[in-house]
Design a protein around this nucleic acid. Structure first.
Lengths: 132, 132
DNA sequence: CTAGAACTTAGAGTGCGCTCGAAGTCAAAT
DNA sequence: ATTTGACTTCGAGCGCACTCTAAGTTCTAG
């Protein structure tokens, strides 16, 4: 019954706890690790069970923000690889995020436009003349 | 050499013209027709080439709004089937759209939240303390 | 001590939404 | 008359992002 994290007040979570906290499945978390999306190697308990640090959880959380704005995993991977190279790649990471930002804005815009079209249809179904 | 659309001033477009106008590929348009997404049978020229009416184009355009708000094709199909049954299914179609509307709002919300997180990161990379 | 839940790896399988290829037809231009 | 290119059908193939299975290990509760 080895106790980890004696040094700092680092919590260390099991994979299922991280799954709960992030909304991903344990399968997805293992998959992310396999394809190289994690910033650092995920710690292991003596049993070889994964132990996630707070930083790991923050990173997974950030990844989900990128993913939920339709950044492909391949792009996230580029970003991770830059991040692993250290501070010197901040300009490149910044550029990557700024480019992505444009696409997110476009997505928001398209979705808002689509919503308007759907609302228009809803209004006609509700018998309200939508232009009225 | 039978001439279609004699009655009205209906324009009739080729598949590639519709592709241009809707942003879909001709492949996707054929696929949509194949899986039953079109409201009515698409007209054919004597050559058996597809001829799209204005109403067809409007329908495809509406479909793309549903799709771009992440409505699965299976759901669009439900909607189409209702629509083909006529006016009596308007309440059901309305309900389907209202339910979808909720999901679109949630998507917009999530995307906005993710954008905020990305902007936060951008700000830190730009050396601005983001909370400042 | 034992049962059962949770974990491990490696690799195969899945669902969605197209996308592509093959083989053929047709119309317009040269 | 022939070449070019857009079209047709049908079915297979593909990329993405997981998701699941199998076989084995380990942790937890009673």
């Amino acid at each position: 019954m080895p106790i980890e994290n004696v040094t700092t007040a680092e919590l260390s979570l099991s994979i299922s706890q991280v799954a709960e906290r992030t909304g991903l499945t344990t399968h997805a978390l293992r998959y992310y690790e396999r394809v190289g999306l994690m910033l650092e190697r995920i710690g292991r308990a003596s049993s070889s069970h994964r132990r996630y640090s707070e930083a790991d959880v923050r990173w997974v959380t950030f990844i989900t923000k990128l993913r939920s704005t339709a950044m492909p995993i391949s792009r996230v991977l580029e970003y991770v690889k830059l991040a692993r190279r250290g501070e010197e790649t901040i300009p490149e990471r910044l550029e990557l995020l700024l480019i992505h930002r444009v696409s997110v804005a476009a997505q928001l815009d398209e979705m808002a436009t689509s919503l308007a079209a759907i609302d228009f249809k809803i209004a006609t179904y509700q018998g309200r003349t939508p232009t009225e």
